[in-house]
Design a protein around this nucleic acid. Structure first.
Lengths: 127, 127
DNA sequence: AGCCTAATGTGACAGTTGTAGCAATGCCTA
DNA sequence: TAGGCATTGCTACAACTGTCACATTAGGCT
């Protein structure tokens, strides 16, 4: 589970994680329905990607009544803070991660999550 | 040259582009020296990556006195604005790209470039 | 002019991602 | 209970990336 750290998710992976962060758990059919327009992927493709994500530990796969349901194995704030820190440093070359005021408009994060994010980012900075 | 748009550079690619944005042109040996510590790459590896970047049109390769020199084929502001726009929308789900005030601390951009960036980002937004 | 060093072009191979199809199995319905 | 549809596990393949090594060649120094 250590390799979760380090590598950013691919675009489809992030899209899928976002779905799971919202719904907590979904089956392949549901996930396919949601992202099929965005990626133009067949059901098979979605399943393959889900399989690989499970292998990597990004999500979990549990059979329930013969149908696999998937749940995220990494939290939204954890993932976002990693990505933000990486982008800030590697791409923008900032010493300090931008204040979360920055992300306040994000449709992705609640106020509570914003606070969490702030905490995580500040903590990461002092290490 | 249309495919420059669309795909983000990989980490090493961005690192190399950054070098070239600063120096305008370098040969493989110089580039290797600069990034060898960061990536732990052999000279061969660096050359392969440069070759592929040239194929993709990210950089140009020109033999000068029997030595290839490389120059960036995409501008810093163009690349950064693309990456920022993508990150803001795709990752953070922001409607509006953050004001450039946020990048003011970036070691990567001069004041002039910051202004350019602002212009490009605003323009992209109204399309 | 010849040799050595450094640079070049090319080839290779493994791992990851994009992109699916297929055969087998299990469950619901007629 | 048999057929059909949905799901699953498995397989496959091409493109891109990471990672080099090797043989050839060109330029500079003796």
């Amino acid at each position: 589970m250590a390799d979760l750290k380090g590598t950013d998710p691919t675009k489809p992976e992030l899209a899928i994680l976002k779905l799971l962060w919202r719904s907590k758990e979904m089956n392949a059919r549901e996930i396919h329905r949601e992202i099929e327009d965005d990626f133009g992927w067949s059901y098979s493709t979605v399943r393959t990607v889900l399989e690989r994500m499970a292998d990597k530990g990004q999500i979990s796969k549990t059979p329930v009544d013969g149908v696999n349901i998937y749940e995220p194995q990494i939290g939204k704030v954890a993932m976002l803070s990693r990505m933000i820190a990486d982008f800030s440093k590697r791409v923008l070359e900032l010493d300090t991660t931008p204040a979360t005021a920055f992300f306040a408009e994000s449709k992705l994060l609640s106020d509570t999550e914003l606070e969490e994010l702030e905490t995580v980012l500040r903590k990461a900075e002092n290490e």
